[in-house]
Amino acid sequence: MGSTPITPTVLLTPQPSFPTTGAPSQPGSMRGMALNMMKEDDAKYHAHENQQMQQQLERQQLQQAQLQHLQQQQQKLASVANSMSPPGTPTRTAAPAGPLSPVAPTVRLVAARIYIQTEIDFKSVNLASNTTALDVLHMLQQRGCFGEPGDGRYHDRWTIFEYSKEFMIERPLRDFEVVLDVIKTWEADKDNKMICKSFPARDELAAKEIVRLVGPAGQASFVRPHGWVHLETKKSKWVKRYLHATDTAVYHSKDSKVTRVGLSLQIWYTLGYVYTLTEFLLSIFACISI
């Protein structure tokens, strides 16, 4: 993997128009009407795409103009330095940019492979330290990796999966996950990949959906998963365990009774009754001691 310094304005533009975030399609009464609606949607989508491309071109032109300006300044500085230096001293060909440089500070980008549908075809994308999975989907969409309207590849269920060949497991990245942070967790000698493919339950990965699930009050009102499962304690040895998640960890126990006590304590704790009870007991002890 290589790294290329580039100004952040090229890739870090927010693009909230990914079709997956749109409303679900309404069932049409007539086939013709539905087709017309689809065509209109496509036209709107293309108009927006063209607009985005124009904006990007404008930004690139502006960036080139800034670079030319900087080069001119550097040449002037070099000529001034040459005229001031005594004869025989080596000339400086590239002066470092000063603090008042017109070019924005550079962001280090890391090139990463995103496989499309299979483990063979891939596209390289430049990832900044804050590029999210949704940003990568936008990049790939702009490059036409998800097909054109009319063919089978053109749908709004594309999702990036983290895939581990060693364990044969995969997980879809949520829209807000930083892709580079995930890649950093990989072992260097293991076969891990980012694969982009269709995910029917893609809506669950959107930040808005997770906020809706967790609830506006935050994690306190969210009922976490719990129940009986089979757990592999040693290789090929499975036992039945009661599994439950708290806000920080996943616990397992042989009996659900212990867990229920723990859960009920947690609920009382959340509601503030534990504090009340402690204060009550302390006040009794204080009265007795007096």
Binding site: E170, E232, D247, T248, A249, V250, H252
Partner: peptide
């Protein structure tokens, strides 16, 4: 405790485990 949620991720298993 099985694991902390902070540093563990949830994955779908592609191929069922042996004797699952």
């Amino acid at each position: 405790m099985l694991c902390l949620l902070r540093n563990f991720d949830v994955y779908a298993v592609q191929v069922p485990r042996k004797k699952a």
